[in-house]
Design a protein around this nucleic acid. Structure first.
Length: 466
RNA sequence: GGCGGCUUAGCCAAGUGGUAAGGCGGAGGUCUGCAAAACCUCUAUUCUCCGGUUCGAAUCCGGAAGCCGCCUCCA
């Protein structure tokens, strides 16, 4: 089966055909670094990670760009409130973002352009939009003239005249011809403080939407394959990006628009503005394994709202524990095996895994296929064990599944000498049938997060997933 | 007011016309010094509700209820 995506633009499932046959270029909406990202934000980055990993799994060469929005009303507001420079405010938040990305085992994109480093590109775009009659100057600011772009609203499928009049339109100090026009360049005002650029457009700063048009086209070209983000970005952000980009090139901007649904906490969208959020760092500091968070975020289809609960996190821990135990079972298996059954199990698993993800990254059936695989192979191991070559192909396939899931094969640091010594002591005690001492040692190790398992092939240990 | 989505077991979650995947949790059994892991068996006669279409509906149509999101700087 071929890969299909639900395209927000057409509101239908479409077969994915990249512009260049073996290469995918995609722009994935990144964080606004005014405050640390929360788990809900990472739902988007996790979806983008699964997308990226599955494209690579399918054999595509991927060029991914993720923006870092380090200039907007909030970054200015917060840095001025603290009396520090914009960069002093945003840099630590950028650092935290990358720490979280690593914790969650999210693969790095090829480019992480920051808005403040692309002012020149943005200015050039705005100039072109002025030339082409899509923009106008009003006071010290420049606005996009929506009425000049007939396709406006095609992504969100909304008509401008249907928007609730006055719903949330700023009563700001800028003068716009019509309320729905949006700022490309904002002339400096006092509350911007030291944040401004002197450019051919005047003294000021870019509007929010222009950065994504400028940076995506710089790194990916005037037309590229995939653009992603949260559903909240469909309107106005992505709608405006299309207007800006196509206003400049006169050509189609993006072929596939993919949007993820929100994470829900206490039956509300997790959001900084609602105050109902929790960060990856906080959960990690509470002792939760970040890969359990990863599993929670990835195991529900990206277009489905996901309710974040501690129960769910607990279930995720148990699930990845089972997957890792399986890996360890396979690694220590021996025996004659049953070539046919193993191959059949692998084929079935690969088919199920790919069928799900091919279908608009519908990951639930794919995860189910992996768990079926676990039971099938465990059952074979229990009956006949595995031959050396079977072991190898089972592990190879598991690794392949995990190249998308990213929760099974993780670096585990070795044991301290002290723990090693305790395991040895316990082995001796067991040999002498001193089970009381043996159990005491096992309990002591458990309290350090080390689980021991006595198996026919010897004592194994693993780290407890908390 | 406009646009969109959701409602399947104790919890999470697949399934878009052919008789309910998978995970977690729970119950029983095998194995084990005891555990753990693993394996085996069981755990939704039914899909929010009410009508309709059909030989057949969780799936299609109509209606109702509840929940959520977007509607100008939110992932």
């Amino acid at each position: 089966m071929s890969l299909r995506f639900y395209n927000t633009m057409t509101r239908s499932l479409e077969e994915f055909k990249p512009i260049k046959p073996d290469e995918v270029r995609m722009y994935t909406c990144g964080p606004t670094v005014y405050a640390p990202a929360h788990v809900g934000n990472y739902r988007a980055y996790m979806f983008e990670d699964i997308l990226r990993r599955y494209l690579i799994y399918k054999g595509y060469r991927v060029t991914q760009v993720m923006n870092l929005t380090d200039i907007d009303d909030k970054t200015i507001r917060d840095s001025n409130a603290k009396g520090i420079t914009l960069n002093e405010h945003t840099q630590p938040i950028k650092d935290m973002f990358f720490e979280d990305i690593d914790r969650l085992n999210i693969q790095r994109a090829e480019y992480y352009p920051a808005a403040t480093e692309h002012i020149g590109e943005m200015v050039a775009m705005v100039e072109k939009l002025l030339e082409r009659g899509h923009a106008y100057r009003s006071g010290d600011s420049i606005y996009y003239k929506i009425s000049s772009f007939p396709n406006y609203g095609s992504l969100s499928h909304m008509k401008i005249e249907d928007l609730m009049a006055g719903a949330r339109i700023d009563s700001d100090e800028y003068e716009k011809e019509t309320a729905s026009d949006f700022a490309l360049w904002k002339g400096w005002t006092e509350k911007d403080g030291a944040v401004f650029w002197e450019t051919s457009l005047g003294k000021g700063r870019p509007g929010w939407h222009i950065e994504c048009s400028a940076m995506s086209m710089k790194y990916l070209g005037e037309q590229f394959d995939i653009h992603t983000g949260g559903v909240d970005n469909i309107f106005p952000h992505h709608e405006n990006e299309i207007a800006q980009s196509e206003g400049v090139t006169g050509d189609k901007f993006v072929n596939y628009w993919l949007h993820n649904a929100h994470l829900i906490l206490d039956s509300k969208k997790m959001a900084k503005s609602e105050g109902n959020f929790i960060t990856v760092k906080e959960l990690t500091e509470q002792g939760h394994d970040p890969l359990a968070i990863r599993f929670v975020l990835l195991s529900t289809h990206y277009r489905q709202q996901l309710n974040f609960t501690m129960d769910g996190l607990g279930a995720a821990k148990a699930a990845i524990t089972r997957l890792r135990d399986f890996k360890s079972n396979v690694e220590s298996a021996s025996g004659s095996g049953d070539g046919i059954a193993v191959n059949e199990a692998i084929e079935k698993a690969v088919r199920g895994f790919e069928e799900g993800l091919d279908n608009d990254l519908n990951i639930s059936p794919s995860v189910a296929a992996v768990f079926d695989f676990v039971r099938d192979i465990n059952s074979i191991i229990a009956d006949n064990g595995l031959s050396a070559s079977e072991k190898e192909s089972v592990l190879e396939n598991l690794k392949k599944f995990d190249s998308v899931l990213g929760v099974i094969f993780v670096d585990e640091s070795g044991l301290d000498a002290e723990i090693e010594e305790m395991i040895q002591k316990r082995l001796n005690a067991r040999k002498n049938k001193d089970f009381q001492t043996a159990d005491e040692i096992r309990d002591a190790l458990l309290s350090k997060g080390i689980i021991l398992e006595d198996t026919p092939t010897g004592t194994k240990w693993k780290r407890k997933i908390s």
